[in-house]
Design a protein around this nucleic acid. Sequence first.
DNA 1: CCATATTGGTGAGACATCGAACCAAAGGAG
DNA 2: CTCCTTTGGTTCGATGTCTCACCAATATGG
Lengths: 161, 161
Amino acid sequence: MTDDNETPGGAEREPPLAFAFFNEVGILHQLGGAMLSQVLPGGVHPSHFAIVNHLTLRGDGKTPIEIARAMQVTKNTMTHSLKTLERHGFIAVSPNPKDARGKLVHLTAEGRAFRERAIARVLAAFGAVLGEAELARMARVIEDLRALRGHLDANRLPPRE
Amino acid sequence: MTDDNETPGGAEREPPLAFAFFNEVGILHQLGGAMLSQVLPGGVHPSHFAIVNHLTLRGDGKTPIEIARAMQVTKNTMTHSLKTLERHGFIAVSPNPKDARGKLVHLTAEGRAFRERAIARVLAAFGAVLGEAELARMARVIEDLRALRGHLDANRLPPRE
DNA sequence: CCATATTGGTGAGACATCGAACCAAAGGAG
DNA sequence: CTCCTTTGGTTCGATGTCTCACCAATATGG
């Protein structure tokens, strides 16, 4: 009986660990994103909130490329997202004085205010659902997740430009 | 780098644990999905592979609604995905003899063959990237992730139909 | 038996994301 | 200076997913 035995009768061998892992990750992502998008003010998309949040925490004045890398999306997607955020008045995009083909992204007062509002609502919503047990689980796994993410990030086959 | 001390006076100093957790989950999801979609034969989408995989492991002959629930997507999305899988010849959709408005989804020989091919390539790709340390991390966190997923699933605000 | 609510499934429209193709500015090498 | 490669950004078309609206069939209550 080898490792890849074929079981007759419908049921097959259990999927490898990595399958189960990414399956959970996918569902968790879906569930968390759904919760988030329900409580974000003005129907703002979670990924857009993430950008504003990132600029607040890590400082603004970054280029779209830098933000795209931080958010793990392509520059195409970032162009689109920034356009939306600009339309909302949450960010201001200006030419980069150091590089004529580049741009710089700055938060507006409105963008910061939006984040404050969003944070409050998100914290309330998540606080209502997450108890001590859940927070303990998150604390227990967060470091492994970070390490895994770093490893995958470093070893992905094609560099995401 | 992880120094996110921001201006004092009301601003958030440390993103709550849940933020960091879902952030890692999101990136992991993105990274894993990208790897998967690169190695899947014929440009098949990861979510479609997941459906074929599910039907293989858990048995086919299920209704679209059941599959949608298992995959954590809406029934509309499932309609669309099944249509694509049917176009690929991986599944066969037939009327449900027990319920005239329902359907039943069965795997075709081609669908099973596709899964075999896909599994082989996916295992090779992931095996090349994931070492013992990574598998150990996954094994260490998988149970907490499952529990978290179950908790979120049970406590989400609006039941996903 | 009929009216109403519920459930399985589909269609249209919106949106985030991706890959490919493209343009413009910057950086080297000669 | 000139050519060529690299890099920052945008546009286009396709796809997966969601919500809202809808239809058909079943289940339920009188």
